[in-house]
Amino acid sequence: MPVSGAVRARCRALLPPGEDIRYVLPALSADSPGTAIFLIVITDRSIFVLSTRFFDRDMPTSVHATHARRTRLGPVEFAAGSAIELGGMVFEIDEEYAAVVRAADAEVFAPETLPPDPLPDL
């Protein structure tokens, strides 16, 4: 399920001016020292990993990490659930967000495979 407009607005408030949000996906990191919930925000220029409140994954609190937009998110590993690796961290994602990861990677690494925007004026 896509994140709500309210969550996207909270994410936008933590980003540098001029960043255009393309995709947002919730992710769970089970790396040490413990479990943490993040929002991965893909913009036109960067990839941001935003920390969230522990009991409210829809409330980003700070920028945990920033990566260049040319950083590959996939492939999605499906061994024990859906997971991606980003910046040395492994993030578990809901299977429904695998398509988001593939689309974000395709924008940068294979734009010819994307369908045309059906509503380019919006």
Rank of each mutant, 00 (worst) to 15 (best):
M1F: 14
M1P: 08
S4A: 13
G5N: 14
A6I: 11
A6D: 11
V7D: 06
V7Q: 08
V7C: 13
A9D: 14
A9F: 06
A9R: 14
R10P: 01
C11D: 02
R12L: 09
A13K: 14
L14V: 11
L15P: 08
L15M: 12
P17H: 07
G18W: 05
E19L: 10
D20M: 02
D20W: 01
R22C: 08
Y23A: 08
Y23N: 08
Y23D: 12
Y23R: 14
V24G: 02
V24S: 00
L25D: 02
P26E: 13
A27H: 02
L28H: 07
L28F: 02
S29F: 01
S29M: 07
D31V: 00
D31L: 00
S32C: 06
S32E: 07
P33R: 11
G34I: 02
G34R: 15
A36M: 02
A36I: 01
A36V: 01
I37G: 08
F38L: 14
L39N: 14
L39D: 10
L39M: 09
I40G: 10
V41D: 05
V41Q: 02
V41T: 13
D44P: 00
R45D: 04
S46N: 11
S46R: 14
F48H: 09
R53C: 08
R53H: 06
F54R: 14
D56A: 13
R57V: 02
P60T: 08
T61I: 13
T61E: 09
H64P: 00
H64C: 09
A65R: 15
T66W: 01
T66N: 08
H67V: 01
H67G: 06
R69W: 04
R70F: 03
T71S: 15
R72I: 01
L73M: 06
G74A: 06
G74R: 11
P75G: 08
V76T: 12
V76D: 10
E77D: 11
E77T: 09
A79H: 02
A80M: 06
G81C: 10
S82M: 03
S82R: 10
A83V: 03
A83D: 02
E85I: 07
E85Q: 14
G87Y: 00
G87N: 05
G87C: 10
G87H: 03
M89Y: 05
M89L: 13
F91H: 06
F91G: 13
E92T: 07
E92M: 08
I93F: 07
I93K: 02
D94G: 07
E95S: 14
E96S: 12
E96N: 11
Y97C: 00
R102T: 08
A103D: 02
A103K: 09
A103S: 04
A104Y: 10
A106S: 12
E107N: 05
F109G: 13
F109W: 10
F109A: 09
A110I: 03
A110F: 09
A110G: 07
P111C: 10
P111E: 06
P111H: 08
P111F: 05
P111T: 09
P111D: 03
P111N: 09
T113V: 07
L114A: 06
L114T: 04
P116F: 14
P116M: 15
P116K: 15
D117T: 05
D117S: 09
P118F: 06
P118N: 12
L119M: 06
L119Y: 12
P120F: 04
D121A: 13
D121H: 15
L122I: 11
